[in-house]
Design a protein around this nucleic acid. Structure first.
Length: 155
DNA sequence: GCCAACGTTGGC
DNA sequence: GCCAACGTTGGC
């Protein structure tokens, strides 16, 4: 069992959108960063859990948890000229971008804000999200860090 | 809106 | 392979 954190801008796609999807499930499309892609493609397994993090909003923070319900497959938006995520260099015979399907597992009763996480950096171990200059949209989370944040959210 | 930090691109 | 220019992310 691995733990992850996945960022999304709520103005584009947030927890309210995920909550209203059929089976509360959605393909996590549009990731166009190789490091993030590699983690989704090579390391994410069915039943892994991920925090849903709202970025580029006020306030930013973790709003709930998701479960990986389908392992990686090529991102179809990369092949669609109408999509804002279209990438002409991604060939269906040799796809460049991959995604996983996620299902909303739990909406936190209260958001755990980035500011709160920063305040508790000493309790959270090595947490990529809090490293200076970090911009990864998909990142691993250590089990102990995961547990601590779930506690902060109210169990 | 600003801007630091980072990733990508492309000329050489 | 180097690196300057440019684009993006995302907190503030």
């Amino acid at each position: 069992m691995n733990y992850w954190l996945m960022k999304s801008e709520p103005s584009v796609f947030g927890i309210d959108d995920l909550a209203t999807r059929p089976k509360r499930t959605e393909p996590w499309d549009g990731v166009r960063n190789y490091q993030a892609r590699n983690m989704m493609r090579d390391q994410m397994r069915r039943h892994d859990l991920a925090f849903l993090y709202h970025s580029n909003c006020e306030p930013p923070g973790i709003v709930g948890t998701m479960e990986i319900v389908r392992e990686s497959y090529p991102d179809p938006t990369a092949f669609d000229p109408e999509s804002k995520y279209y990438d002409p260099k991604s060939d269906p015979d040799n796809p460049r971008w991959y995604l996983v399907d996620v299902r909303l597992k739990r909406r936190f009763k209260r958001m755990v804000t980035l500011a709160e996480l920063r305040d508790r950096v000493d309790e959270l171990g090595d947490f990529t999200l809090l490293r200076r200059g970090n911009r990864l949209s998909v990142m691993p989370v250590e089990a102990a860090t995961w547990q601590r944040i779930v506690e902060l959210a109210g169990g």
